[in-house]
Each structure stands twice: as structure tokens, then as C-alpha cells.
């Protein structure tokens, strides 16, 4: 019996007793876990981006009104009331920061990573974005402009990364798997498909 089996049985014992005492409903536990696994995380944003890559009309709606467009996919809530999508192009790379606190498009990206809230990121992304991006592993070509967006409660920015070349044949799910959280903050680009 492995250590995991032992833990599993212990947890099952706790859960079965709580159910019998009427303190917990297993179906509710299922729903909560599924909620955290599926509804609260950057996979939401990745689905939005994949849709924008494949559906030009959706892309236009997304860029015109981010909040409304992501609601079409079922993402929203109080924290998502002011989502603004900005699109990377061959000429411009966008990156998001919240200089004052940690404003973030929660319904599409989940909780912000620790570094996003750090004083260093908040100040340096404004003062020397190209250098900081390089340190974070993204070298933006000199020919490309870097545009820094300051997120706030009025506008929580979501970067739509450029669609990588060679992805024409991929389906929505495969495309979404190329879109990382970091690429939607703008400190990375979308992943190349694995051949």
C-alpha cells in the first residue's frame, strides 16, 4: 500500500463520516473542486484567445468589448466587469502591469502570480520594460514596439498573443494549450506547437 493509498483512505474516512453526519454533501464537494479546476484559472483566458484566433467576428467583439465577449464563453463576475483585450501584432508587443496594486482579469486568468504583485515588477515594467522582459526570458526584437498597459479597477487588461506559425490545422483545444498565463500578461509569447 502506497503512502497515497493511506492518505486516500484517511480522507475517504473523514468524508464518509461528514456525509453521514449531514455536514458535507459529496456532490457539492465535486462541484467546488470542478469549479476551482475548470473555472478559475488561465485556461479560461486561453480559450478566449484560441477563439479569437479562429473566429474573426469574435476577435472583433473581444477587442471592442472584452467583458461582453468573454461573457459569451461564460466567464465573468464582479471581478471581470472591466476586461479590456489588447492584441499583439508583428509591430507591437503588449505587456500588462498594475502599478498601484494587483488589478488583474481574474475570471480569465485566475489569481495573479506572486511576481505580478511584487514592487520590482510594478516599477521596473514601467521604467525599463524591454530589459525586464529580457530577464524574464522574452527578448522583444528591436524592430517591435513594446507597449505597457497599467491595469486598474476600470480596465483589467488581457493580452491576446500572436498566433504561432504552423498552427493552421490545430483545433480549439490544441490552440488553447499553446496559450500560457504569462503570454496573456505579455511577459511571454504563445508556445510553438510540438511537431
Amino acid at each position: 500500500m502506497t503512502a497515497d493509498d493511506v492518505r486516500a483512505i484517511r480522507v475517504e474516512a473523514v468524508e464518509s463520516l461528514l456525509v453521514e453526519k449531514g455536514l458535507v454533501d459529496s456532490a457539492v464537494v465535486d462541484r467546488i473542486v470542478e469549479h476551482y479546476e475548470n473555472n478559475v484559472g488561465p485556461l479560461n483566458g486561453a480559450k478566449v484567445v484560441a477563439r479569437a484566433w479562429t473566429d474573426p467576428a469574435f476577435r472583433e467583439r473581444l477587442l471592442a468589448n472584452g467583458t461582453k465577449a468573454v461573457a459569451e464563453l461564460g466567464f465573468g463576475g464582479p471581478e471581470g466587469s472591466m476586461i479590456v483585450a489588447i492584441e499583439n501584432t508583428p509591430e507591437v508587443h503588449n505587456v500588462v502591469v498594475c502599478t498601484l496594486c494587483s488589478c488583474y482579469p481574474w475570471p480569465v486568468l485566475g489569481l495573479p502570480p506572486t511576481w505580478y504583485k511584487s514592487a520590482e515588477y510594478r516599477s521596473r515594467m514601467v521604467a525599463e520594460p524591454r530589459k525586464l522582459l529580457g530577464e524574464m526570458g522574452l527578448d522583444v526584437p528591436a524592430t517591435k514596439k513594446v507597449r505597457v498597459w497599467d491595469s486598474s479597477a476600470e480596465a483589467r487588461y488581457l493580452v491576446v498573443p500572436e498566433r504561432p506559425a504552423g498552427t493552421e490545422a490545430l483545433g480549439a483545444e490544441e490552440l488553447a494549450s499553446l496559450v500560457s498565463r504569462d503570454s496573456m500578461i505579455g511577459v511571454a509569447v504563445a508556445k510553438e506547437p510540438t511537431p
Binding site: 497515497d4 486516500a8 480522507v11 468524508e15 454533501d25 457539492v28
Partner: peptide, 14 residues
């Protein structure tokens, strides 16, 4: 492991 998601969900349900 599955027990990890279970014990997470139990706490949040409570």
C-alpha cells in the same frame, strides 16, 4: 493525487 483534490473540496464545502 485524487485525495488531494478531495480534501481541498471538503474544506471549501464546509
Amino acid at each position: 493525487a485524487p485525495w488531494e483534490r478531495r480534501v481541498f473540496g471538503i474544506v471549501l464545502a464546509l
